[in-house]
C-alpha cells in the first residue's frame, strides 16, 4: 500500500509541473494553453468564417485558402513552423510557450472559422429576409438577427472543439513544453519503476477533463436544441444568401448535416 502511494508521489508534478520553482506545467498548462488558444483564435476564426461567406472574391479566396491549407496540415507541422519561424518574425527571442500558443491558435482558427460559417448558414434564411424587409441594413441584420442565433447554434460545437483542442495540446510536448504528456515522459524516464504510474496519471488527467467537457457538450446540445435539420441547407453559401436568389429550393436532400464540427 505504501508502495502504491509512492508510485504516485509525483502527483504534483503532473498537475502543475515544476510550478513554484519554475514555469507552470502539467495538466494546468494543458488547460491554460487550450483556453489561450481558443480565445485568441476565436476572434481570428470568427473573422475568417464570416469573410469566407462574403460575396467578394478577393475576401473569400484568401480566407478559403487559409482554412483549407491549415486544415490539411498536421498540427505537428504547424508547431515546427512556428517553433523555427517565430523567433525570426518577432526578431529575437521567443519562448517555446509562446510558439506553442501561436501554433495552436493558428490551427484552431481554421476550425473555429468552419464552426462559425456552419453556424451562420444554419440560421434559416427567412430570418435574413424578414430582417431585410423590415428595412434593416445588411450589417444590422447580421448583428442583431443572424449572429445572436448563430452563436446559440455554435455553442455545442465550440465545447466539443474545446475538447479536441485540449487533446491536441498533448502534441506540443514535441518542442519541449512541460505539459502533462511531457511530465509523464520525464518521470517515466527518470524513474522507470514508476512508468505504469506515469502513464496511468497521464491517461486519467486527460480523461477526466475530456469526459466532463464532452458530456457538457452533449447536454448543451440537447438544451440549445435549435438544430432543426430542416433549416440547415448544405448548399447554402453566403453569396446566394446575400443576393436572395429567386428560385426556392424544396426542402429535399438536406438530411446530411452541414455542420462540420471538427471531430478530432
Amino acid at each position: 500500500m505504501i508502495d502504491l502511494l509512492g508510485q504516485f508521489e509525483n502527483i504534483r508534478f503532473y498537475l502543475v509541473g515544476p510550478y513554484p520553482n519554475g514555469a507552470i506545467g502539467g495538466l494546468s498548462l494543458n488547460i491554460l494553453l487550450t483556453v489561450l488558444a481558443i480565445s485568441f483564435s476565436f476572434v481570428f476564426g470568427a473573422l475568417l468564417g464570416y469573410s469566407r461567406l462574403s460575396c467578394r472574391l478577393y475576401i473569400k479566396l484568401p480566407c478559403m485558402a487559409y482554412i483549407e491549407i491549415v486544415r490539411a496540415t498536421p498540427l505537428i507541422m504547424i508547431i515546427f513552423w512556428m517553433y523555427f519561424f517565430l523567433p525570426y518574425l518577432v526578431g529575437g527571442h521567443a519562448t517555446i510557450f509562446s510558439s506553442a500558443v501561436v501554433s495552436l491558435s493558428i490551427y484552431a482558427a481554421a476550425y473555429q472559422a468552419e464552426i462559425v460559417r456552419a453556424g451562420i448558414i444554419a440560421v434559416p434564411r427567412g430570418q435574413l429576409e424578414a430582417a431585410l424587409s423590415t428595412g434593416m441594413s445588411r450589417y444590422g441584420a447580421m448583428q442583431h438577427i443572424i449572429l445572436p442565433q448563430a452563436f446559440r447554434i455554435m455553442i455545442p460545437s465550440f465545447v466539443s472543439f474545446f475538447v479536441s483542442l485540449f487533446k491536441d495540446t498533448a502534441t506540443v510536448f514535441i518542442i519541449g513544453v512541460i505539459e502533462l504528456t511531457q511530465a509523464g515522459i520525464i518521470i517515466s524516464q527518470r524513474d522507470p519503476d514508476k512508468m505504469y504510474a506515469a502513464y496511468l496519471s497521464m491517461a486519467i488527467g486527460f480523461w477526466c477533463v475530456c469526459f466532463t467537457m464532452s458530456h457538457l457538450a452533449r447536454r448543451l446540445e440537447k438544451k440549445v436544441g435549435v438544430f432543426d435539420l430542416e433549416s440547415i441547407r448544405p448548399d447554402a453559401c453566403r453569396d446566394e444568401f446575400m443576393l436572395l436568389p429567386k428560385q426556392k429550393k424544396t426542402g429535399e436532400g438536406i438530411e446530411q448535416s452541414v455542420v462540420c464540427a471538427p471531430d478530432k
Binding site: 498533448a170 504528456t181 515522459i185 517515466s188 512508468m195 505504469y196 480523461w207 475530456c210 469526459f211
Partner: peptide
C-alpha cells in the same frame, strides 16, 4: 468513452513504451 477522451498521442506512446512491458 475511454479511447475518445484520451489523445491519440498517448496511445502511440503507450504502445511503444508500456505495451512491451
Amino acid at each position: 468513452e475511454i479511447f475518445r477522451n484520451i489523445p491519440g498521442l498517448f496511445w502511440i506512446l503507450f504502445f511503444y513504451f508500456v505495451f512491451p512491458e
